[in-house]
Write a protein that binds this DNA or RNA. Structure first.
Lengths: 198, 198
DNA sequence: ATATATTTAGAACCAGGTACTAATATGTAG
DNA sequence: CTACATATTAGTACCTGGTTCTAAATATAT
């Protein structure tokens, strides 16, 4: 068996069972353990423990869903239909374990919660949003989201809310939200092409 | 601090971060490494490597049993840099208690997680997104998010990912995500990648 | 036959432990 | 206070599944 063939087979085996040790691979491929290791090097396949670690981290990060709270972040100031401020501190459970950077959806959730809370209506739901993560947010940083209502299209209409989130003086996130304020049934799925690209 | 208190704390720490080594625990609990190990024995907590292995096996099993399983909020199919599918069932804790409608950020979080997971890179972060909540999602509905990579701008560039989320046949959400794939250092303030990992 | 590539061998070292023995500190009952 | 128990610390040997390095043996090509 040529080197290339063997490396192909090695890839297949590890793909089919990532929990295989080098020692097991020697038995399956009938070459020495050094050859197995050289092959792994060339193919850029990490050792068993590293493979397991990566799988574990990956699944762990995934499991971390949003908390049960209705609102993400503490709303510290709220003028209905006008503006609001919310504070949210990034804790362990909000970051990627690997690098301590906040998962985007938490930053979004804070802004979204605020944008919805600010609209003084029985039902307020986000219809669309255009958002930008300006810089990443790290563990223990405190996000201060400031929301401003830009337009209020009467009852049962859309409201536009801008949210800017800061860490200290630095802008980390900005979002333009279009929030429906309406009775439930009215929600349409038709041609509401609201999230127009700038 | 009493033994019981310490063991409670140990449980908390490991629960909050299963990737912690005994050595790190000595620093946090201010006792010797032998004490940590005795505590782990008494509490039936396996060593770090065993914990990672179990997590890895668990997630691997889940990915393998993708078709029938009622997996909730989980990525059931993933082709790195290409496409992916995630399932998420809306439960009590995800809805507005008043009307049983899902908070937008959960639907967003599912899509965002998927968009980030699909990018096969050490660091992948959402840079910006343009999203639309097509119809609202109700309690107990099962959201199936399907992601497709639209473009991959080489290493350290942006990737574009489209995500469409369905309940049954109905489109409920769509999002266009721009995901950064890069080394951390590239972003501002040179950070501390892989923070406390040996 | 000589140069080059490939494969194997072996030793030192590593992280993150287990398993075990032994010594020391702390408390508690008689 | 002593005696005993419990809790804590220290230290050693050993384990797995590797990495890293040097060196030698074997194949293959020119």
């Amino acid at each position: 068996m040529s080197k290339k063939e063997r490396q192909q087979k090695l890839l297949q085996i590890i793909d089919g069972n990532p929990f295989v040790t080098d020692r097991e691979l020697t038995r399956q491929l009938k070459v020495s353990i050094q050859t197995i290791r050289l092959d792994r090097m060339e193919l850029g396949i990490p050792e068993l423990r590293e493979r397991m670690k990566q799988m574990a981290e990956h699944s762990y990060d995934q499991v971390r869903s949003l908390p049960a709270d209705e609102v993400v972040g503490d709303i510290v100031d709220l003028q209905l239909d006008r503006s609001g401020i919310s504070i949210f501190e990034i804790r362990e459970e909000h970051v990627f374990s690997r690098n301590g950077i906040a998962r985007g959806h938490y930053v979004f959730a804070q802004a979204n919660s605020l944008a919805v809370a600010i609209i003084n209506d029985e039902i307020a739901l986000t219809a669309s949003a255009d958002i930008r993560f300006v810089r990443m947010v790290r563990l223990h940083e405190k996000c201060i989201a400031k929301a401003q209502v830009r337009s209020l299209a009467g009852r049962n209409g859309k409201a536009e809310v801008d949210v800017f989130t800061y860490v200290g003086e630095e802008l980390v996130f900005q979002g333009h939200f279009i929030v429906y304020r309406s009775a439930i049934e009215e929600y349409s799925e038709g041609g509401n092409r609201s999230a127009d690209r700038h």
